[in-house]
Nucleic acid binder design. Structure first.
Lengths: 221, 221
DNA sequence: GTCTATACGGTGATAGAC
DNA sequence: GTCTATCACCGTATAGAC
């Protein structure tokens, strides 16, 4: 109310921030593509700018440092991942076993499990030890997902009248299993197809929860 | 017989190659230490030379390229790993379940599972997609271990009178599980202690092989 | 064999025109 | 906001003395 004077501004604030968001997104996507093509150490401000069809200058204008740009790219990758499993969880209904199965199935969805996506995961993880910023980002998102997995496992154990104190260990194990199969897909050693990896994971889940074999039945048959 | 002329050479051939092997080893260890301290992209010929107490020139003299030196370091890391699980397998005797347990236990032995060792694993894996040489080395050694794991699983299944065609899937799953727990230890998210990771893995093995609960009993109790 | 000195290209980040 | 031009630095690999 105090600023109702003057006419329409030629460049309202909203439009500026929208442009900024657009450019940031453009650069982040370019960074992800560059990582897939050139690896993380092979990704430079030059490769990102070329991939984005922009100059090197705009990259530093919007992200100040290369590390900031890469961190934003990692966050974007994790956000996609999280959106994927959250949607799967929402669609799964209330049955704990179905929720657990949905979380596992989501991990082998092409959008997060493709070879391209795997390259990005492992590139960032590989540098996490020498770049604390990457490690913090990974840790934050990994916690969300671990909590969801543990909650689903705990609900299932409770439903079955079993010891719920096992939930954390089982959740960690299931997450380990899917991550390890991701590694095999990434390195193209052992299991190489997502569908096969999902079948193996379900085989383990049937052993862990023999009371509910149908929910973790062999998929795709 | 054609070269029996002349006296004793001041520098016999064997001594030269021994010196070469010594220097190579010295540089390889220095490279591994540098990777642990500075990460793989942060490892340069300068950091390796400093760590080895040698000049930068000798590194290229013995390995020609930086990539060659790093590849040798990766091979060394895998050789240690392989030696570790082969010894465990030899000591395990003939019982298939014991052999399987020994392979798993070996994976969480400090020498291959320490945080330092994990940094090396994930640093190389992270670059495997952009460096085919690294990928080939990893693939070669991973195959040895997969085969051993699958063989142990197959023997156990046969002993129990179960379907041996499952051996490959179970082997891949067990390997995935241990690798995924390695990742958690490395990222310090979820399971962080090797002993805990081993307990989780054994919990899964008890579910998969309920006929032999004692062999995969909770360790360290 | 081992060293120092150096060539040469590419890196992240800055400066300043438009 | 976006660009080009440029800086200072550091990377690998080579050359050549010892």
């Amino acid at each position: 109310m105090s600023q109702d004077s003057g006419g329409v501004q030629p460049r309202p604030r909203k439009e500026r921030t929208e442009n900024a968001a657009r450019r940031r997104g453009q650069l982040i996507e370019a960074a992800l593509r560059s990582i897939i093509e050139n690896g993380l150490p092979g990704t430079t401000l030059a490769t990102v700018a070329r991939e984005a069809g922009l100059s090197q200058g705009v990259a530093v204008f919007y992200f100040q440092t290369k590390e900031g740009l890469l961190a934003a790219a990692l966050e974007r990758h994790y956000e996609r991942y999280e959106e994927n499993w959250r949607q799967a969880l929402d669609a799964a209904g209330d049955d704990p076993a179905e929720r657990l199965a949905a979380l596992v199935r989501a991990d082998f969805h092409p959008s997060v499990c493709s070879r391209e996506a795997q390259i990005v995961w492992h590139a960032f993880w590989g540098e996490a030890s020498s770049r604390p910023l990457f490690n913090r980002i990974a840790d934050r998102f990994d916690t969300h997902r671990s909590d969801a997995l543990e909650a689903a496992a705990a609900a299932l154990l409770a439903e079955l009248g079993r010891d719920t104190s096992e939930a954390r260990a089982l959740g960690a194990g299931i997450e380990g299993l899917t991550d390890g199969l991701w590694l095999q897909i990434y390195l193209a050693s052992g299991i190489t197809r997502p569908a096969e990896a999902l079948a193996v994971t379900f085989r383990f889940l049937r052993a862990l929860f023999p009371e509910r074999p149908a929910v973790f039945g062999a998929p795709g048959d």
